[in-house]
Design a binder for these strands. Structure first.
Length: 633
RNA sequence: GCCGCUGUAGCUCAGGGGUAGAGCAAUUCACUCGUAAUGAAUAGGUCGUCGGUUCAAUUCCGACCAGCGGCUCCA
């Protein structure tokens, strides 16, 4: 295993070099702009030590180690210096050098710098050592700034016409938390000023769709300090959306032969010792709950906290865990009966709430929380049934995302990293499981990427990934194959040969978690939920208080028909009522005045389709009922 | 958890060593109105929390809490 490590690193390095040579024009421009940024920073702070400066989605960054802490106040100064560099219009010159020559430059501090220094270019020395023997080494010069770089670049610094320093953050050198923390300066660059302006405008627009902002404005969910960080509180309107989604999933489950079960939020530590969650994932769990009597006894003995922890780890005193997963509970339900091959597959589903001690710095909005509800299910089947079951699961995820109009997702086949020891189970089972998933995903005919090292500790998985408004990837739906837990829990069924066999397990969740899914759904719809999901589906707007009674009659009729309806009977003018209703993103507005009362009709205005004119009350009610039952978008 | 930034009314934000302001929202009253803002009045804040410096702190300093961006992590 140890011998594999350097090989893997080399392969990775080669891949990124290849990728660099395949840069798009825009990436080439942005990477060049990163050099312009570095030139400017190096001029302002000559002690700056640069690490890597690649193009990224939406721009570029350059990692720098620097005594001075760069703050947004410095951006203007940096941009002003960049402007000079651009104006000088120096060509980007590529020079091939020998390893020794490159090392000599790096040692004299000349790389990633505008001058020689009395310290070496530490990160460049390090990078040089990582370049494979047979790799050509190149240096790019723009004016006084020389950098170790594979390129490619644009012709001249003057090509970087439209750029902006966006933000500064910290990042570990080479992404390893044991390494030094560097300052990462983010910037962006476009072919021209117009495109840059448009990009910045899009970012502003995107922020308005942020689910954290909309969730508060629309009264969907909230957080409270005294409840705790990362513990979402679903308010009534958010609760409606959640319930509708659950009902939708439940209906699909009924069609596909699932059974819903209910299990407690806690389980004994031994359960998780068997599954492997405890103690291997202890850091990401809420601490165990220890029985009062055991605590009292230890305290009487004068035990310390570490004594307590030792006892818990050793299993000499018992405790409970807030469940980080639903699988062990479902496994115990499967195991509660003798199972014959005729019973399989057994499909157990639950909207199961789990608790994970995510790092505080990682929490945010609904997308990363400490308590969330999975639309979870575990399938127990035979080896022969596995392929078909996986495909059915993938089909369900597709149906669910399709119903909501979420077509813009990525599919990721997450495999184990053969170089890591975090996985449980034997390699043969892993190979089988990975092959089964790969086959299913290919049969499904969607594009996907294979990601070694992204698997769960108990098995490989297929994930559906969606971007949020600021471009971050989030895993939603998932289908995972597990040969390990059936082994660990010694599960069996009786086969047609009248002998016990080991079932295979599938973990799957089409939404992933309701919290994260709703977060991304808010952004997907910009808060304008389709009628079936909208917390308020119709708002009745009487022209004046004289028509309150007629409005109330319509409300009763709609409520009777199962429509979520409210009336705006304030003294506002109709224009103001419409404005408010639109800001609340209500799909249907029904205006009632003298004319409508006379005709027994309503004047209907749809959120997205505009004025629908005068519609008879009956037609209006049936139209909305249809809209809801079709779950139309 | 780490690095950085931020925290003033329900929301968006101004202000600033001598204990606070606007707009919107809310409440009340008047208006009874035809498709994106009718007018007036009222109320609303221990300036995130706890310490320190000071005659005096919301303002300066520190710790903590929370939010944001990124990193690391994500069974």
């Amino acid at each position: 295993m140890l011998q594999l490590a350097p090989l893997m690193a080399d392969e990775k390095e080669r891949k990124t070099l290849e990728e660099r040579h395949q840069m798009s024009d825009l990436e080439r421009l942005r990477h060049s702009c990163a050099h312009v940024l570095a030139t400017a920073v190096s001029r302002i702070w000559p002690d700056a030590q640069f690490a890597a400066g690649p193009p990224v989605e939406g721009g570029f960054y350059y990692d720098v180690d620097l005594e001075h802490r760069i703050t947004p106040d410095d951006f203007e100064k940096i941009e002003a210096e960049m402007k000079k560099v651009v104006k000088e219009n120096a060509p980007f010159e590529r020079i091939t050098v020998s390893r020794d020559e490159a090392m000599a430059l790096a040692k004299s501090g000349r790389l990633a710098s505008v001058a020689e220094r009395d310290v070496e270019s530490v990160f460049k020395v390090d990078l040089l050592n990582d370049i494979p023997e047979d790799e050509e080494i190149s240096i790019f010069k723009n004016g006084d700034f020389w950098d170790l770089c594979a390129g490619p670049h644009v012709g001249r610094t003057g090509n970087c016409k439209a750029y902006k320093v966006m933000s500064v953050a910290s990042a570990f050198y080479q992404g390893d938390k044991n390494n030094k923390s560097l300052q990462r300066i983010y910037g962006t660059c476009f072919k021209n000023k117009t495109m840059l302006e448009e990009h910045l405008e899009r970012l502003e627009e995107a922020k308005k769709r942020d689910h954290r902002k909309l969730g508060r404005e629309m009264g969907l969910f909230t957080f409270d300090d005294s409840v705790g960080q990362g513990l979402p509180l679903w308010k009534p309107k958010g609760g409606i959306i959640r319930r509708e989604l659950q009902d939708f999933i439940s209906a699909e489950l009924d069609k596909q032969g699932y059974y819903q079960v209910f299990t407690p939020h806690i389980g004994k530590l031994d359960l998780y010792r068997t599954s492997g969650h405890f103690p291997y994932y202890e850091d990401s769990q809420f601490p165990p709950i220890v029985e009062r009597e055991a605590l009292k006894k230890l305290s009487d003995e004068g035990a310390t906290c570490s004594d307590l922890m030792n006892h818990v780890s050793a299993g000499t005193i018992d405790g409970f865990l807030l469940k980080p997963m639903n699988c062990p509970h479902h496994i115990k339900i499967f195991d509660s009966e003798h199972r014959s091959y005729r019973d399989l597959p057994v499909r157990l589903a639950e909207f199961g709430t789990v608790y994970r001690w995510e790092q505080s710095g990682e929490l945010g909005g609904l997308t990363r929380v400490r308590s969330f509800t999975q639309d979870d299910a575990h399938l127990f089947c035979t080896d022969e049934q596995l392929g078909e079951e996986i495909q059915q699961c993938l089909g369900l995820v597709k149906t669910v995302l399709g119903t909501l109009g979420m077509q813009d997702y990525g599919v990721r086949l997450s495999l184990r990293d053969p170089d890591s020891d975090k996985y449980v189970g034997d390699p043969a089972s892993w190979d089988k499981a990975e092959a089964a998933l790969r086959e299913a995903i290919q049969t499904l005919g969607v594009e996907y990427t294979e990601e070694p090292g992204e698997a769960a500790f108990y098995g490989p998985k297929i994930d559906f990934v969606v971007k949020d408004v600021i471009g971050r990837d989030w895993q939603l739906g998932t289908v995972q194959v597990d040969y390990n837990n059936p082994e660990r829990f010694d599960l069996s069924y009786i086969g047609s040969d009248n002998k016990p066999h080991r079932p295979v397990m599938i973990h799957r969740a089409p939404f992933g978690s309701l919290e994260r899914f709703v977060g991304l759904l808010i952004e997907h719809f910009e808060g304008k939920f389709p009628t079936w999901l909208a917390p308020e589906q119709v708002r009745v707007l009487p022209i004046s208080e004289k028509f309150s009674e007629a409005a109330q009659a319509l409300v009763s009729e709609l409520t009777e028909a199962g429509v979520r309806v409210k009336v705006d009977d304030t003294g506002d003018k109709i224009g103001a009522k419409i404005r408010l209703a639109r800001m609340d993103r209500v799909p249907y507005l029904a205006v009632i005045g003298a004319r409508e009362v006379e005709e027994n009709s309503v004047s209907v205005r749809h959120r997205d389709q505009g004025d629908l004119g005068s519609i008879s009350t009956n037609d209006f009610v049936s139209r909305i009922k249809e809209d809801i039952s079709n779950r139309s978008l």
